[in-house]
Amino acid sequence: MVEIRSPSVRRGWSESARARASEIVGQYPEPRSAVMPLLYLAMAEEGYLTDNGMREVASLVGLTPAQVRAVASFYTMYKRDDPGRYLISCCTSISCMLLGSDEVLRAIEDESDVTAGETDPEELISVEHVECIGACGGAPAVTVNYELIEGMTAESARELVRWLRTARPEAIVGAECQELFGGRRSFDWGPFDRDSALGPYPAFGPLGTVSGPAEDQDG
């Protein structure tokens, strides 16, 4: 129970987000467990995790905003600074490093003119280096909006950046990016996965952060 009331006016969430939020809360024996999926929902709703989004989540699960922020700031994928439309995450952990990830990252930074940790002025591309993303068999690897591309080279990394700049895809289809820019994979991924990421958060149906299979996207 907290006496302090929000001083700022809330931008309300959409009806569909509210409905999804209550579904998510209902999936757990205790509402607090829904904090993490709700934070993703907040990102999808506003493009990134705003103070408003955290307040909203707090009120949905009965926590203080400080408690929600404590959780949000613990995890690297909740972006509290407005990232670009495309978040390029370059793995530089041990296996990728051994196979040239530092060159891949330098190529991405150079081609995009965005230093790791930053976003370009038109808020199109954000670049970050990340720790191991579990693609060590296909090292070096990157993700764009958490959609994986394995077997990168410095050159393919430059192509990827140029493509994002020029093609400006509505959503990122991982399998498509892999075909266009990737190389060796950790393992056979199986059939073409058409699910696509709508923003700098993982594409996952129950969160509503994914666009469903779009048959017409691929010839």
Binding site: V2, I4, P7, D51, M54, T64, A66, V68, S73
Partner: peptide
């Protein structure tokens, strides 16, 4: 704040070596 007084307005924020105690922006430790 959480256990005794029941008004958790200050919390650990961030992680690891960057961990800090802080309030939510604009929500003072009142």
């Amino acid at each position: 704040s959480e256990e005794i007084s029941g008004d958790p307005l200050i919390e650990f924020q961030e992680r690891g070596n960057y961990t800090e105690v802080n309030t939510f922006p604009d929500e003072p430790f009142r």
